[in-house]
């Protein structure tokens, strides 16, 4: 699993956007489209190449209840597998 001090960022060619027709946040990339739920959208928004997994969890905890670094790491894993996110460190 992605380490707590790892720093994720969106890969080159990946765009985060809001889709008014689906009323959802989405990520757009060469192979397709991911429709994000609220938490995933918040995580993607913080995959900025500066904030660590731990840092993302801490930021999210200000907004949502019961956010654990493990959950963020697991979500980042899935985004890495879909080639939406790269991880440094």
């Amino acid at each position: 699993m992605t380490a707590p001090d790892a720093v994720p960022r969106l890969r080159r060619g990946v765009k985060a956007a809001y889709d008014p027709t689906r009323e959802s946040h989405v990520v757009l990339f060469p192979e397709g489209v991911l429709v994000l739920n609220e938490t995933a959208a918040a995580v993607v928004g913080l995959c900025d190449g500066r904030t660590s997994v731990q840092g993302i969890a801490a930021r999210l905890a200000e907004e949502f209840d019961g956010v654990r670094a493990d959950d963020v790491a697991e979500l980042v894993d899935r985004l890495v597998a879909r080639r939406v996110v790269d991880v440094d460190g």
Binding site: A17, D19, T21, R22, V26, L28, G32, V33
Partner: peptide, 8 residues
């Protein structure tokens, strides 16, 4: 297409 939901 966009109105229908196309994003790509």
């Amino acid at each position: 297409a966009r109105a229908l939901g196309v994003l790509q």
